Structures are given as structure tokens and as C-alpha cells.
Amino acid sequence: MSERTEHLVVGGGAMGLAAAWQLAARGASVRLLERFEAHHTRGASHGSTRNLNNAYAEPEYLDLFGEAVTLWRALEAESRTELLGLHGLVTHGDADVVAAAHDALAARGAAVTLLGADEAAARWAGMRFAGDVLFSAEAGIVHAARALAALEAAAIRRGAIVERCERVLRIEPQADGSGVRVTARGADGSERALDADHVIVTAGAWTESLLGDLIDLPPLVVTEEHPAHFAPRSASLAWPSFNHMLPPELEAEYGAPVYGMPSPGEGVKVGFHRVGDVVDPDERTYRASDAQRERLRRYVAEWFPGLDGDAPAEISCTYTSTDSGRFVLDTVGPITVGAGFSGHGFKFTPAIGRVLADAAQGRATPPECFRLRAHAR
């Protein structure tokens, strides 16, 4: 005998928890299945901080950012937990990227300022800068681990059922149009069937293995990324969050843009964006290559005089990326998919939860640029 629910969410990282929260808040019956324990380190949602980065020129991302901040603030008020730290964000390096982000944000009335490199270095003495520096005062960090706990608690308060250590084996749309049957295996090895009117799949690096035979997904490349925390040389140094959008000569040397942020109690997080080795998410090394480690240390030595580059505390996480870096948000029959967050999705989490809930309930379709047909072009 199978169990039945109105909405089933597969994957309990940030996006799945946000979708469950949004659906439960609307009075829907929701059950979430997560393969691993809370705050596990096998995926993409763990860790203490994420970059609350609004340095985009594309309106779809800026729309999501504004909505996400509003929803983060609502969740803060409900949970009585600080989830955002607005110490500001600096973006520098590629002059065209900096100018485009500045103009897009300024047009929306955002609190942004262009600083010269010397002026920025005087303000943030632990860093070096190149060219004009975009300072966004309404940006900073998301306290990621706190956010996951707050999302889960908010969903459960509204009636959502969250079950961990439940590995989904199969997702089968029913031929009679009655919804979806999901087969899951518990920690004791037993299997059970659950029926749902609709399923939302937010399974990160495991999306392809669950949906590849059901939905014509764009290529989803899973990489293992290794940013690291570096200790400041002085407690007196101020740290913003940051993006270094490398110009061609530096990209040839380092290979990718750099991002980072202060992580209270851990140091300053610095990492290259989308440079990791392609991996099977179940067969990871949890260790950067020697070449990657050396490149990051060399970068920090050149661009962060205020950090001790010799003793990094390495982090391991996965990116699941599309070719364009755009997210995959769409519905096919009784299945809604949220995937391909490409290393820059966390800040948008509560807004993406709303998009997924709308799609699952048939209230609204996701923004066109994130839908499957847009990826097929």
C-alpha cells in the first residue's frame, strides 16, 4: 500500500526546503525526501556562508534578487535569526562587466558607487584592486547553515513532513495521469512507494540520474569545487564580499573569475568559479589537485595582502552547471525540476522556492530564460 501526498519534494538542500516552505505556507500537503542527514557535506548547500551578490546586469537575476532579499527578511523575522549580513560587495576587474552591473543596478535605484582602485584599497586594505570598483551597499553574505535550518523549521511549522536518509530510486509518472509514483529506500534498506499529485525534483548533482530518462534536460555538468578559508593577518582589517571578474590577461593566468566573502569565525573565503574537475557525485575525492591548490595560493598572495595564503582551510562542494550558467526551472507533466544552479544560486533560494511552488501548482510558469526550451536554443 503506497502513501499519498499532494506535493512531494525530492532533495532537501536549500532549493527543496524553500519549495516545501512555500507550498506548506499555502496550505498544501507537502512531504520532502532527502537522501542524506541534515547539513551533510556531499552536495552544494552546506557551509557557513554564501555570497549575497547583486552584481548582475540581467533583469531576471535582479528581479529574483530583490524578491529573495524580501523573503530572507521575512524568514529572519519569523525565525528570529540573522540570515543576512549586509557589509557590502565589491566587483572589479573586467571594466565592461563592472559598468554593465553598475548601470543596471543604478537604474533600479540600488545603493551602488563606483570607486577608483586606490580609493577601494584604502578602504579595504587587505585587498588589491584593478580598474573601477563597483561597491554595492545592499549586498554581503547569507548565513547558509542558519538559512537551511530556518527554511526547514518554517516548512515544518506549516505542516510539511521532512524525511531524511531516504534515497529516491525511481520517479514514475502514472499512465492514467493520476500523478507520480516515487520509490524510496530508507536507511534500513527497506523500500516503499509514495504517490503524489506532483513532484518537485531539486536533487542537485543527482538530477540527471533521477530525471534523465523522463525529461529532456540540458547538459548538467557536475564538478567538485575547492574554495578555501584564509586567515586575516590583522583583526583590524575590514572585509567586503567580492567578485574579481578577470580581464583576459588574468583569466589566461588563473582560468576563472574569483569570488569570496568573510565567513565569521572561519576567515575569508576565496575561490575560483567553476574550475573543478568533473566528477561522479558518489565518487568524489574531497580534495583539490595540487595544481588547483597552488593556483589559489598564488592568487591570494598577489591580490590579498591582508590574508595568510600559506595555511588555507580547504572546502569541498559540488557545482551542477549548465553551459550558460542559467538555472533550469520548468515543469513537464507532473514533474517540476529545479537544477543547474551553476554555483551562483544560493542567494536566490527563497525566490526560487516561490517559482518552483508556483510552477508545481500551475499558478505561473518560471521566467522564460530558465525554462527547458530556452536551454535548447
Rank of each mutant, 00 (worst) to 15 (best):
A130E: 13
L115G: 01
A137E: 11
L134T: 00
A155Y: 02
F129P: 05
D96R: 12
H102C: 10
L134P: 00
D94K: 04
L115D: 07
F135W: 13
G140W: 04
L115W: 15
L86I: 10
V98G: 05
A153R: 08
H102W: 14
A150D: 03
C165N: 12
D132L: 07
I161N: 00
G140A: 06
A110C: 06
A120H: 05
A196Y: 02
G109Q: 06
T91I: 08
I171S: 09
G85A: 11
A122G: 13
L134V: 03
W124C: 03
R185D: 01
G109K: 03
D103L: 08
V182L: 15
A187L: 13
V162D: 05
E163N: 05
T91V: 10
A125I: 00
E152K: 05
A147G: 10
A125M: 00
V162A: 08
A187D: 09
A104S: 07
G85P: 00
E191L: 08
A153Y: 05
V133F: 13
T91F: 07
R123V: 03
D195H: 12
A193G: 14
A107H: 01
I171M: 02
V98Q: 03
V168P: 08
G116V: 04
A139E: 11
V112D: 04
P173N: 11
R146V: 13
L134N: 09
V97F: 00
Q174H: 11
Q174L: 15
A145H: 09
C165W: 09
V168S: 02
A122N: 13
I156L: 10
R146Y: 13
A125H: 08
D197W: 03
A104I: 05
A101C: 08
R167H: 08
A193V: 07
A145C: 05
D94A: 14
D195R: 15
I141C: 12
D176Y: 12
A175V: 15
D94V: 00
V98W: 02
W124T: 00
V168G: 04
R185E: 14
V133E: 02
A110P: 04
A121L: 02
L105A: 01
H102P: 01
R192L: 06
T183A: 08
A121W: 04
A150Y: 06
A145F: 03
A144Q: 13
I156G: 11
L169D: 04
G186P: 06
L115M: 10
